[in-house]
């Protein structure tokens, strides 16, 4: 409730009720409403503390480096997923598009003798085309995103397997530029914390998309379309054009991730990133972006992806059965969506 410049005595019991001090719970609700990334950030900090206490190796530079690398692929795919979920859509074809791009660029370079740069550009372009196809089906054929991407998930997976014959392209056959994303950068000297160039690429993607979402008109329109598409349309926003751009940009991000994936795995395999679909959605949801659209952002998603990997690494270092990780992630997803439902009921 805003207080006016000259506070008049409340005229009725209802107004008095509205003017009363907020309970601590309401304050939390308001804070989360304004900054939905707070709760995942708290969970991440808590997880790091607990896992370090359980096994001090968790906080070792090498373990942290590995954690960041292992997060990179899911985190990168989750950027595109965040964009699509912000428009109240969903993308089940993330993994399939990435694999198809991976196999195309690796095969072109290793078996068809096409220069690495050209192969990468063609692979990324395929990601753009695949994303645009999703977007076209959603906006022109008016199919629900769930159905569209469920269909293209099978289509792209099948094409990737048919094209590659189910065979991986081995790292030795790949040109250096293609595995460049796996090279380590050691800013603090040997034996300390390091990142790969792929991790840097992903970080740059986060910065660019984060900037576009929060600082440009396009970003506003993405939020508005997910928040209330009809209101956006009436405000003069070309909703279908925004949606098409979101799916296409997501495809571009998947294509670039395909390159990062080759560096990370050191091999182009049609069976990699098999559960990337659900992992990317999990990261987005745990990161506080609403599945109903219009709320959230990539910062939360990055934290969400880190949480998932921190639980995997932490629980394994603590010597706990892997099923406890699966169980915990399941609980986190449900808690995250419940919190989202709660904070959208915020009142003035």
């Amino acid at each position: 409730m805003t207080t006016t410049s000259s506070p008049a005595p409340p005229a009725s019991a209802a107004e008095e009720l509205a003017l009363r001090r907020q309970s601590p719970l309401q304050r939390i609700q308001h804070a989360l409403h304004a900054y939905p990334a707070i709760s995942p950030a708290l969970i991440l900090v808590l997880a790091v503390i607990v896992f370090t206490a359980a096994n001090p190796n968790f906080a070792q530079p090498n373990a942290l480096s590995l954690l960041v690398q292992q997060t990179a692929i899911v985190a990168a795919l989750a950027i595109g997923q965040t964009l699509i979920i912000l428009t109240a859509g969903i993308d089940l074809s993330v993994g399939a598009i990435t694999i198809l791009s991976t196999m195309l660029m690796a095969t072109l370079a290793a078996k068809n003798g096409i220069p690495a740069v050209v192969a990468i550009v063609i692979g990324v372009a395929l990601g753009v085309g695949a994303g645009a196809l999703n977007g076209w089906l959603v906006t022109r054929v008016n199919l629900p995103p769930f159905i569209v991407t469920l269909g293209t998930l099978s289509i792209f997976t099948a094409i990737a397997l048919l094209y590659s014959g189910g065979q991986s392209v081995q790292g030795d056959d790949l040109p250096a530029l293609m595995t460049w994303t796996g090279e380590a950068i050691r800013p603090f000297g040997p034996g300390t914390f390091y990142v790969t160039t792929g991790v840097v690429v992903v970080a740059v993607l986060y910065l660019i998309v984060g900037f576009a979402l929060s600082q440009t008109a396009w970003g506003r329109h993405v939020y508005a379309v997910g928040d209330d598409a009809e209101a956006a349309r009436l405000a003069g926003i070309r909703v279908k054009r925004v949606l098409l751009s979101v799916y296409t940009v997501a495809g571009l991000l998947y294509g670039i991730t395909a390159w990062v994936l080759i560096g990370r795995a050191g091999v182009a395999s049609p069976n990699a990133a098999a559960d990337a679909n659900l992992q990317s959605i999990t990261a987005v949801v745990i990161g506080g972006t609403s599945l109903f659209g219009g709320r959230g952002g990539v910062l939360g998603t990055l934290i969400g992806a880190l949480i998932v990997q921190a639980f995997a690494t932490g629980l394994s270092l603590a010597g706990v059965d892997d099923q406890y990780r699966v169980l915990t992630i399941g609980i986190l997803v449900i808690v995250a969506v419940s919190v989202d439902q709660w904070i959208r009921k915020v009142k003035a």
Binding site: Y223, A224, D227, E230, A231, L234, G294, R344
Partner: peptide, 10 residues
């Protein structure tokens, strides 16, 4: 418009 054309989360 009668259906308030405002985006609630913005």
């Amino acid at each position: 418009y009668q259906t308030l054309a405002v985006a609630p989360a913005l």
